[in-house]
């Protein structure tokens, strides 16, 4: 069962989003996420919502998967929007004891919940359409300027690469150790939380020991293959911006200016 895990949530396909350069994708997604949070009226919000609908539609990923990714945050979503419902100031439309709902409160609740949903949809569309390794690659290249601040971007990227590579291996190993301990009579499924955490110790100790041994061997193997840090290292895979990237860049720029114009010329309903 563990063998089948897929890291990240990549959904294979050949949509515009799949074909975009991962660097451009990250930049544009971040831009959109920032602009979700600076929408102050329904026109601006509507524009961003429309954009997200188009992105989800273009991604070639079933909408069901997007809705699934909402599941994790459904509680936070309800909690914050209900809380915000009672938070607004102004004339009360309805009140019960010290709780009162105002028009501002309703606006708040709507904005907050839509913003969270969009945030999830946009970040999911990035992870659904990009391989984890491509993400790591893109992050390494995007952060390259940080080298001037003496931050070793290559090392961070190498750590992410190795983590991605070893998560399935270590999960498989955890599975094996758990079976081995169960075969020796360990009970991991019953008892309260404290008992269950205690039952995990005989799993974690061998897991750590083996992880350190693996790390030692991997370091040795990397040295055998002439690894000596990022300096003088080339890459087989080159990233290239293509036409699709520039079309998307243009589209996002138009949307962003639309949002800014809406914010300036139309009355704000949010702070």
């Amino acid at each position: 069962m563990v063998r089948d895990i897929t890291l990240g949530q990549f959904f294979p396909g050949n949509s515009i989003l799949h074909r975009m350069d991962p660097r451009m994708k990250i930049i544009l997604m971040l831009t959109l996420i920032i602009f979700i949070f600076i929408t102050f009226n329904f026109f601006a919000l509507g524009l961003v919502v429309a954009t997200v609908v188009v992105i989800v539609g273009c991604s070639g990923v079933p909408v069901k998967l997007f809705l699934k990714s909402l599941k994790a945050v459904i509680f936070i979503l309800l909690f914050t929007s209900v809380l915000n419902l009672f938070y607004g100031s102004g004339t009360a439309l309805w009140h019960w004891g010290f709780l009162s709902i105002t028009l501002a409160g309703i606006y708040f609740a709507i904005f907050i919940s839509i913003r969270i949903i969009e945030l999830i949809f946009i970040s999911s569309s990035l992870t659904f359409t990009t391989q984890p390794t491509d993400l790591t690659d893109a992050i390494e290249r995007l952060l390259k300027p940080l080298n001037h601040l003496h931050i070793s971007v290559h090392e961070i990227a190498m750590m992410m690469t190795i983590a991605l590579r070893f998560i399935p291996t270590l999960l498989e190993e955890t599975d094996k150790i758990m079976s081995a301990q169960k075969a020796r009579g360990a009970d991991m499924e019953s008892g309260n939380i404290v008992q269950r955490i205690k039952a995990m110790i005989p799993v974690l100790v061998p897991l750590f020991v083996s992880a350190f041994r693996r790390a030692y061997e991997l370091a040795m193997a990397m040295e055998c293959r002439c690894y000596r840090g990022g300096e003088g290292r080339t890459r087989m895979k080159q990233l290239h911006y293509s036409k699709v990237d520039f079309y998307c860049l243009g589209a996002v720029l138009i949307i962003v200016s639309g949002v800014i114009l809406c914010n300036i010329f139309l009355p704000a309903v949010m702070r």
């Binding site: 390794t133 690469t161 693996r214 991997l218 293959r225 000596r228 080339t234 890459r235 895979k237």
Partner: peptide
């Protein structure tokens, strides 16, 4: 298991030549 660095076969094979600074097409 402990000598493979990358999570895609061809990228792992490329690891050595990349360390040597071989140009991309040659790798």
């Amino acid at each position: 298991d402990n000598q493979i660095v990358a999570s895609i076969v061809e990228e792992d094979v490329a690891f050595g030549p990349e360390n040597l600074g071989v140009p991309a097409e040659e790798i």
